[in-house]
Simulated assay, not measured.
Amino acid sequence: MLRLAIVDDHGIVRAGFREMLVDELGIRIAFEAASGEEALEKLREHDCDVLLLDLSLPGQSGIDVLRIVRQRYADLKVLVLSGFPEERYALPMLRHGANGYLCKDCEREELLKAIQTVARGRRYVSGRTAELLADDLAGESTAPAHESLSERELQVFLRLARGESVSGIAEALNLSVKTVSTYRSRLLEKLALASNAELAAYALQHGLMVA
């Protein structure tokens, strides 16, 4: 029996995926969670094989959760479910440890295929993501600058773009204020920007606002 967890802050979305999977033989819902903190707490209490993880969560974002899961649960498979198209986050999430990336408007058959693929230890790549990967490998990618950010840089970037303070980010990510300030300076340099306001504008322009 494959144990599946659904992490999304919208109850109607969780119910929708639960309804899609309720009659599927061989799959059991291990738990549901409405936030990153709740997901991490329940992972300590329940065994799970595949985590369906939304990117946009209150508090700890899906990116935060992915980072922690990769540190603590090496064998847990993570399938990112997102309202953002592949062009926005698929490649960064795969690079940072996700086993697959799927848009929320997927059909039931594609969801099942993705779950079964990652459960077998393989990566699930949609047709569009495969094109993006091929372009990237061929050096033909026109990927925006944010795709080159490290996992931690992406975390800090998205929090700064939401208007969080350096001290608040330091507390949330268990980093020193000096370290976060260093990340901020590095981000401004990599993205060729000059201020937090420009970081926010960049995030909006590229449709990257998470949580």
Rank of each mutant, 00 (worst) to 15 (best):
R120T: 13
L25W: 08
L102Q: 09
V13R: 03
I6P: 07
H206F: 10
R186E: 13
Q116V: 10
R184P: 13
V7E: 09
A192M: 14
S195N: 07
A201D: 01
A145G: 11
A34M: 10
T182V: 09
E109N: 12
E171D: 08
E140H: 14
R123T: 08
K42M: 05
H10C: 02
I12P: 06
L94E: 09
I6H: 07
L51P: 05
F84C: 15
A192F: 14
R70W: 07
E86Q: 11
L79V: 04
Y89G: 09
I68P: 10
Y183T: 09
T129E: 05
N99D: 15
L187Y: 01
A98F: 06
Q155S: 01
N196A: 12
T179P: 00
S141K: 03
S181F: 05
S165W: 07
D136H: 14
V22P: 05
L160V: 06
K42R: 02
L208G: 07
L133D: 00
L4E: 04
E24H: 10
H46Y: 10
R162K: 15
L91C: 03
T179R: 02
R88M: 15
G16M: 07
L25K: 13
E37H: 06
L79R: 11
E38R: 10
L55N: 00
R184C: 04
Y202C: 00
G100I: 06
I29T: 11
L208E: 04
S176H: 11
L91I: 04
A34H: 09
D47G: 02
E32K: 07
F84Q: 13
M93F: 02
T129A: 10
K42D: 11
D105T: 03
L187F: 09
A5P: 07
H46L: 09
G207Y: 04
R28W: 11
L208I: 03
K113A: 06
Y89R: 08
D64R: 05
S126Q: 07
S35Y: 01
R14N: 08
L175K: 08
D8G: 01
Y73R: 07
V22N: 08
L137G: 08
D64C: 03
L112G: 07
M93D: 06
I12W: 15
G16D: 15
E86R: 07
A194D: 15
K190Y: 09
A98S: 05
L204D: 15
K77I: 09
A143S: 02
E189S: 04
C106P: 04
H10P: 11
G207V: 14
D135Y: 14
L199V: 12
E41R: 03
G127I: 10
L25C: 11
L91F: 09
G62Q: 00
L137Y: 02
V80A: 10
V166H: 06
L91S: 00
T179D: 12
G26K: 13
M1A: 14
S56F: 10
A161N: 02
Q116F: 12
L154E: 07
I68T: 15
L102P: 05
M93K: 05
E110M: 02
A194E: 14
L137E: 13
R28T: 11
I12A: 15
R72N: 10
R18D: 05
L112A: 06
L40G: 08
T142W: 12
K178L: 14
S148I: 09
L21K: 01
M20P: 12
E107L: 04
Q205E: 11
V210H: 06
K42W: 03
V177I: 15
E45L: 13
A192T: 14
Y124Q: 06
